[in-house]
Amino acid sequence: MRRFILIAVPYLWLMALFLVPFLIVLKISLSDIALSIPPYTPQLDLTEGWSGIKAFLSQLDFENFTFLTQDPLYWRAYVSSLQIALISTVLTLLVGYPIAYAMAQAPDEWRATLLLLVILPFWTSFLIRVYSWIGILSNEGFLNQFLLWTGIISTPLTILNTNTAVYIGIVYTYLPFMILPIYSALEKMDGSLLEAAEDLGCSRLSAFWLVTVPLSKAGIVAGCFLVFIPALGEFVIPSLLGGSDTLMIGKVLWEEFFSNRDWPVASAVAVILLLILVVPIVLFQRNEQKQRELDQ
């Protein structure tokens, strides 16, 4: 009996507040916008019994999805979301790998401190970390002041409100997610493997490519997914650092819902975003699964 309660409580909670809301989104994405409260139709009326359900089902259609395929705005938003997420993931990897590598190579007594320094920003507010870049990247911001002062540029660069600022923001905020899995993969690595590679004729650099990189592959893959997946649906960064022409699907969904109050279309946007995310999520789970099996 106790076991039943133990299982039932979290199970039902997640059913009610995760699975059911999801089905509602799916259902509304198949409905039509209406000038009512709530602003969509049809509404399921269970008091009418079976005929009510039938009438309800017959009114559902894929009209919103057809609309999404026809309006280039949405297409471009999806494509540009994918593009921005992909580019920033690669950039984060390029920035994060050397840091993770250096941390794994660091003297033992330094490791704990370095790890703390990587984790610390993760505990500080995401919003504040994004906000801190506004003052740096704006036209009269610190970066431009610095570059003008050194004489590298003569007129201020426009960075804020462009995609570049979005890349910087994503790399900055998601960097710990890239560093940590790579670090833990590199840290586990047995140092004698590199010595063995050198002993067998590798130079330092080829030992890095042939041994270190393959052995940290699981960490790299995990890190990339941990950046790519949330970056794809990101809302705060494009709306604070991006410009009006920065199209990201999270922002489109938000505006569709709050500004246009078109709930059915917002729901359809969400459903498609989710379908796009299924692929990387499944791949990510496979990677984790494989890693767990190898560790055992």
Partner: peptide, 25 residues
């Protein structure tokens, strides 16, 4: 059950927020 435990970790916040709002309404 394990799917419902792991899925919210990777769910975009906009979708979680939207779906919960639609439930509450």
């Amino acid at each position: 059950f394990s799917g419902m435990i792991y899925a919210p970790l990777v769910m975009p916040e906009v979708i979680t927020g939207l779906s919960l709002l639609l439930l509450f309404i």
